[in-house]
């Protein structure tokens, strides 16, 4: 098989020539690996549970403790690796709910038009006007702070961006010949929505999702920084930054290194998303 002439092979080559995209992919793979194998590669896997070691509190980074220890003597590096699990779980769950809902609504609004479009898009406009962090704060304050409620709160507004994106793509596609041909042949609405329109949105969705992963992780971290996410002792990157911030600037590692870990994963997904955007020539994604 000659890779040079298959479209997949051509794309992979173009992707490889984009150094930032490759870096992004590498970061994402590293993070996924770290999260998946955290129990085996972290030096102190017990430190994510109910363990304290007050004799080793506030140790600076060293070979024993790569990222130092926190105020109750737990290894920060181990907790960061496990923290990635929570972050990825949060982002995966939020996007797993928000993307299908958002895409479906976007397709319906863009294809059917009329009052369906009016209702969906005006609700969308209203939702877009609410700052996601404020909404998330409200939801988690009314309900009790927990990971599930953070997810709910973020997902409750995240669909809007996908609806808007897919709506605009669908609008440009719906009067094209292949759609009209399908309609003339008597294809069902469902067929047109999900077999004709959706595949044409796939690359845009892929790019958007990979960019969003970083953003959702950031919002999740902001929420837990404010004390509205995961409860102790479960390791969460945002909570770790908040806990460590009390010891700035002398014990910089306690806030800075978990913060750098958030930066790392968000940067990875952003670079990857950028790379994918160039690859697929999707201009409509911000």
């Amino acid at each position: 098989m000659s890779a040079a002439i298959t479209p997949g092979g051509r794309r992979w080559r173009r992707f490889r020539r984009n150094p930032t995209a490759v870096i992004g992919l590498a970061i994402v793979l590293v993070v996924l690996f770290a999260a998946a194998f955290a129990p085996w590669i972290s030096p102190y896997p017990s430190h994510v549970g109910a363990v304290v070691n007050f004799r080793a509190r506030h140790q600076p980074p060293s070979l024993h403790y790569l990222f130092g220890t926190d105020n109750v003597g737990r290894d920060i590096f181990s907790r960061v690796l496990f923290g990635y699990r929570i972050s990825l779980l949060l982002a995966g769950a939020v996007l797993g709910v928000a993307v299908p809902v958002g895409v479906a609504l976007g397709l319906i609004a863009g294809y059917f038009g009329g009052w369906v479009e009016t209702i969906i898009m005006r609700v969308n406009d209203i939702s877009l006007a609410i700052p996601p962090l404020v909404m998330a704060l409200a939801v988690t304050t009314v309900l009790t702070p927990s990971l599930l409620h953070s997810m709910l709160a973020i997902a409750a507004l995240w669909w809007t961006w996908h609806t808007r994106l897919i709506y605009s793509i669908t609008r440009t596609l719906r009067h094209q010949e292949f759609i009209e041909a399908a309609e003339t042949l008597g294809a069902s609405k469902l067929h047109i929505l999900f077999r004709e329109l959706l595949p044409n949105c796939a690359s845009a969705i892929l790019v958007k999702v990979s960019l969003d992963f970083g953003f959702v992780i950031l919002v999740g971290a902001a929420l837990s920084y404010l004390g509205l996410g995961v409860q102790p002792p479960t390791p969460d990157l945002g909570t770790m930054v908040a806990a460590g911030a009390d010891f700035l600037p002398e014990r910089w590692w306690e806030a800075l290194l978990p913060g750098a870990a958030i930066l790392f994963v968000a940067l990875g997904f952003n670079l990857l998303g950028d790379g994918l955007r160039d690859l697929f020539d999707v201009e409509s994604v911000r």
Binding site: A50, V52, F54, N71, V72, G227, Q231, P232, P233, A243
Partner: peptide, 26 residues
């Protein structure tokens, strides 16, 4: 309150060693 959280984690750690399951809430 930092020390209250630290005390909570200490209690949790010791109580779980003797057979309790402790849910901490700040």
């Amino acid at each position: 309150t930092k020390f209250e959280e630290e005390l909570g984690l200490l209690m949790q750690s010791n109580l779980e060693q003797i057979g309790f399951k402790v849910t901490l809430a700040g």
